[in-house]
Simulated assay, not measured.
Amino acid sequence: MYQSAEKLLDKIPSEIERADFDFKVAWLYYRLSHIMLSLSYIRRALHVYKRHKQYERRTALSYSLIAANLTEIGRYEEALENYRLAEEVLTSEQDDFMLAQLHHNVAILYSFWNKPKESIRHLEKALSHQEYYDSDFFFHSTYLISRELCVIGEKQRASQYIEAAYARIKDASHEVFQLKIGIVHDLYLTHAPQRFQQIDEKLRKLEEKNEYHEVKELSQFAAKYCEKQALFEQSVFYLNKSLEADLHMKRMGLI
C-alpha cells in the first residue's frame, strides 16, 4: 500500500507531508530489518524536518530512528552520535518525557553493544521520570532492565522489576509484554526441566501475533544464554529460530 501511495507523492505540494510519508515508510522498513532502505527514507525526511523550526520533535525522532537502524548493523559509535544529536534537540525543547524515551533507546543500543551496566544506567534514568513510569512505556523498560540485570547476575533485582510489572498488568493489551518477560523469567529465574518447552510455546504465540521482530531478538538472546551454559544443541536451535524469523520479515517486505 505504501508503494502504491508513493507513486502519488509528486502530486503532494507540501514537503512536510512528503517527509511524514518517508518517516512512516522508514519505520516500517526498520521493523522489517531492511536497514539500508529505512536509512534512505529517514535521512530524506530528516533533511526536510531540519529546515522547519516547528518540527523539532520529528527531527529528534528521525535522529533516533537513524540510530536504531545503525544499532541493528553494529555501527554503535555512529548510533550513539545520532542519539546525542536527538538529545540536544529535546533538551533545548525541554521535552523531559521524550528524553526519558531517548534514554530507553540508548539502553537498547548498549544492550546490543554488550554493555549491560550502561544499558541499566540509562533505563534507570528513563524510569526515574514519573510520567514515563506511569505510562505504558514502563513495560518496555521493565522488560529490558530485568533482562540486563539477569545478564550481570542481579537476579533478585530483576525479579523485583518483573513482579512490579506483573502487578500493573490489567488486560490482554499487555500480552506481548507478558510473553517477552516470561521468556526472560524462564531462562534465568527458573530451573524447571520443562522451561525450554515453555519458552518455545511463548515464541510460538509471538509468531501467531506476527511479532517476528521480537521472536528474532528473543531467540538470539536465548541462544547466547544457552551457549554460555554449554547447551550447544539448544543454542543452535534458537539461532535457527532467529534466522527463520529474519527470513520471514524479509519475505513480508517483498510482498
Rank of each mutant, 00 (worst) to 15 (best):
K155M: 09
E15M: 06
G74P: 07
K24C: 05
L254W: 00
R121A: 15
M98I: 01
A19M: 09
S40K: 12
S235H: 07
E81F: 10
S159L: 15
L203C: 06
E217T: 12
L203M: 13
L70P: 03
S38W: 10
A223M: 07
T190I: 10
I181G: 01
Q197A: 13
L203V: 14
P116G: 02
H47I: 04
S62M: 06
S62T: 07
A223Y: 03
M249A: 02
Y83F: 13
S92H: 10
T142H: 03
E15T: 11
I16M: 02
S14M: 06
L149P: 02
F196N: 14
S33P: 00
R51M: 10
D136S: 04
Q194K: 15
F23M: 15
K53I: 12
S219V: 10
K209R: 12
Q101T: 06
L247D: 10
Q220S: 10
K209Y: 02
P193A: 12
Y161D: 11
R168H: 07
E81Y: 06
L65M: 12
K250I: 09
L189S: 05
D200W: 05
W113G: 00
I12G: 02
Q94K: 15
I255T: 07
Y83N: 03
Y2C: 01
A167S: 11
L247G: 00
Y49P: 11
H34K: 15
I255Q: 05
F232C: 12
L9C: 10
E78C: 04
D134N: 14
F23I: 10
Y110W: 06
H122I: 05
R204A: 12
E201W: 01
F21Y: 12
V184C: 02
H104C: 01
S14L: 09
K24F: 04
E148S: 03
S146D: 02
E217V: 14
L80Y: 08
A45D: 13
G182L: 08
A230P: 00
A67L: 02
S119C: 04
L123H: 01
R121W: 02
A79K: 07
L127V: 12
V25H: 01
S62H: 03
Q220P: 00
E6K: 13
M98D: 04
V176E: 05
V151W: 01
Q197I: 13
L9D: 04
L99P: 02
L231V: 07
I12L: 05
R121K: 12
A19L: 09
H122F: 09
F177K: 02
L102S: 01
A230K: 12
R204G: 00
L149V: 07
E6C: 01
E78L: 12
F137N: 08
L231H: 11
L37N: 10
W113I: 03
D246A: 08
S159N: 14
H248T: 15
R157S: 11
I120Q: 00
H52R: 09
S242A: 08
F23H: 15
S33N: 07
K209S: 06
S128N: 11
H104P: 00
E244I: 10
F196W: 13
C226A: 14
A45N: 09
Q94C: 11
K115H: 04
I120W: 00
A222R: 09
K7Y: 01
L8C: 06
E124V: 07
N240L: 12
V184K: 05
A67W: 00
L179P: 03
